[in-house]
């Protein structure tokens, strides 16, 4: 559970690395927290890495969109920093380490996890952006009527 704290601090750090505006720090921290919370809960109940990374990508994307409407700023600020805690840095490293140590099976295992997370995030983003596009299109139709 303390990982939640570390994840949000990490997101905040990345907000600084990408030179975000000072008054956005608090929202960036919340974004990181929400992202890891979504991952943690969905992983606990489904035990499926692919599904849980997709869920947390959707959550982050939605959060970014809501925040960008409220604060009137680009969504990039929140998607870039919010997705950080689930970026598969750990499994990428373990894959490399096991390749060097000639543990091919373990390396393959970690490689599959890396791929799973990446594909999960990609499909989550895809799902979220298709929903958002449809909503936007319907809004335009309604206004033009």
């Amino acid at each position: 559970m303390i990982n939640l704290l570390y994840a949000s601090i990490g997101s905040l750090g990345f907000g600084m690395v990408f030179k975000a505006n000072k008054n956005k720090y608090i929202y960036i921290t919340i974004g990181g927290l929400l992202n890891y919370l979504a991952y943690y809960l969905s992983y606990k109940y489904s035990n499926n890495i692919f599904l849980s990374s997709a869920v947390c990508a959707v959550v982050t994307r939605m959060y970014a969109n809501v925040m960008s409407i409220i604060l009137k700023c680009p969504t990039t600020i929140f998607t870039l920093t919010g997705l950080i805690p689930i970026v598969p840095g750990g499994s990428l490293f373990y894959m490399m380490q096991n390749l060097v140590l000639k543990n091919t099976n373990e390396a393959l295992n970690q490689g599959i996890i890396t791929g799973e997370v990446i594909l999960g995030i990609v499909s989550g983003m895809l799902f979220a952006s298709s929903i958002l596009t449809i909503i936007r299109a319907i809004k335009k139709k309604l206004i033009s009527f």
Binding site: Y6, A7, I9, G10, L12, G13, F14, G15, M16, V17, F18, I84
Partner: peptide
């Protein structure tokens, strides 16, 4: 930011 993110 780097100094915060890496230890975190």
């Amino acid at each position: 930011g780097g100094m915060i993110a890496a230890p975190a």
